[in-house]
Design a protein around this nucleic acid. Structure first.
Lengths: 113, 113
DNA sequence: ACACTATATGCGCATAGACTCATATACTTG
DNA sequence: CAAGTATATGAGTCTATGCGCATATAGTGT
């Protein structure tokens, strides 16, 4: 277990910002699409069904947060996941949500007439 | 490692929402203040320096996300962390940010004469 | 140089949500 | 029941940001 000291105001802002970057479905979709390796912007546009402009913008946001990395090759730009902690992060949240949902389902199965 | 399948649109929204709940400095401050055990609203107001109204609102948000739990005792309401995955989540993000910051520092130490 | 493709970005609109003030609710005590 | 304390919430304002449209920039091939 990591030791958790007192967090400064500034540190809190950083952490909050990091979470906020992951708080958009489209960006999660992009990250998820990159789980199995790098992809070009066009490939990501197709994979997500978003517009090119929007996908590009979200990729910028993810880049600025150092979550993705860029590789330019001719006309195309390939993005890939730069911060491996994203995997664990998503696993954690998904796991926690599954638990919650199964509990809520339990309420229905249990209480229902 | 958990297996990561394809996430539905709906699942993405849930995960995004979960992140968005943690994407506010004030809420992180509250969660952080609860790391060492339950506290009353008043105690949290003092600990965070926020207004009572605002603290109460953020506590609602954290409750609805099933991150906190409530215990009422007379006039006071005590909140505590209900979802232990929060600890790991924060550790992960903090660790990742520390790495990033030390890398950025390295750039300066390295390139600068 | 021109046309073409891939990606990035300026701008404007619309919405979400954080904050404050005032007030409502819930409980306790006299 | 009245007064006091702890917490929650309605209404309004203000800022942030996601999205679409159009256009800019960068690179390739003829």
């Amino acid at each position: 277990m990591a030791k958790r000291g007192i967090l400064s105001e500034e540190a809190l802002e950083l952490v909050a910002h990091r979470f906020s970057v992951l708080a958009e479905p489209m960006r999660l979709k992009l990250v998820h699409a990159l789980f199995d390796g790098e992809k070009s912007v066009n490939a990501l546009v197709e994979a997500t069904g978003g517009t090119q402009a929007n996908v590009s913008r979200h990729l910028q946001t993810l880049m600025q947060a150092h979550i993705l990395s860029r590789r330019k090759e001719g006309l195309q730009v390939f993005y890939s996941i730069a911060d491996p902690s994203i995997f664990k992060l998503c696993d954690l949240v998904c796991g926690s949500l599954e638990k919650q949902l199964s509990k809520q389902a339990g309420v229905f199965n249990h209480g229902g007439r």
